[in-house]
Design a protein around this nucleic acid. Structure first.
Ligand SMILES: [Mn+2]
Ligand SMILES: [Mn+2]
Ligand SMILES: [Zn+2]
Ligand SMILES: [Zn+2]
Lengths: 126, 126
DNA sequence: ACCCAAATTGACAACGGTTCTCACTTTATT
DNA sequence: AATAAAGTGAGAACCGTTGTCAATTTGGGT
């Protein structure tokens, strides 16, 4: 565990919304940390493989990362305006996915499910 | 409607699986069509905006396109080995998405749902 | 068929996020 | 302190995609 990694880990711990590698890098620089962009990318992808952070790809092509509270499998409801994120755990979708796969003779099926909309507070501001 | 566009349209019509812009370009070149890669990109993105083709982004960062049979909203069950694609229309997920959004005070919620696994024929080959 | 404005095309440069390279520094172990 | 292994930084390279702009093609009016 290096200085750079623990700085990133600490930052993720106090960042509630999904952020891109570049955003996280800027945030670290902004608070005086000396760290390179390449290191941020490497650390994030290592954490993602370990399941320590969740990865999300928006409509654009850039990945965004988040330290999620619950360790178990879940999905995200993300505000497309402010980024506010709600973790959603429910078995309805998992059952649907399993049933659909079985009906079509598929196996080893994984699913990608994300919801994006406008959160209550963003709706108030209009 | 130009020569290039109709060639691409015809190709998509007889291509059952999701293909990338570059793959489609190579296929057209392979059958003797003179068409540039930029034109393929432009045509595909126009068709996507018109809803004439569906767009899917896999684990990598490249987009894949497919002329889907049903025009209404649906999801895809894709074989990660051979690309074989099944269109899935069911209301379970839509209801779950709407309910979840409402429970958390979100509005204007859209959902991205994709299933990927191994199809029956790919399973046989093992 | 001809004219012409508008749309489309092709070759190539540019872009943006990400990954690679490799010399150097830091870490962990003895 | 000595040493091997792991991590880092700067910048180049990568790759799918989008932009540029001159040249070509298209379609509607005549
Ligand atoms: Mn799930
Ligand atoms: Mn749906
Ligand atoms: Zn919001
Ligand atoms: Zn298959």
């Amino acid at each position: 565990m290096t200085r750079q990694r623990s700085a990133l880990t600490a930052l993720l711990e106090q960042t509630p919304d999904f952020r891109s590698a570049q955003q996280l890098h800027e945030m670290l620089r902004g608070q005086g940390e000396a760290i390179s962009l390449a290191t941020v990318y490497r650390a994030l992808q290592a954490m993602a493989e370990e399941g320590e952070v969740d990865v999300l790809r928006g409509s654009d092509s850039e990945l965004r990362y988040r330290r999620c509270r619950r360790g178990e499998h879940h999905h995200h409801l993300v505000c497309r305006s402010c980024g506010h994120t709600v973790e959603v755990t429910e078995t309805v979708v998992e059952r649907w996915a399993a049933r659909t796969a079985r009906e079509h003779g598929f196996a080893a099926v994984s699913h990608a499910v994300e919801l994006s909309g406008l959160c209550a507070s963003c709706l108030d501001k209009t």
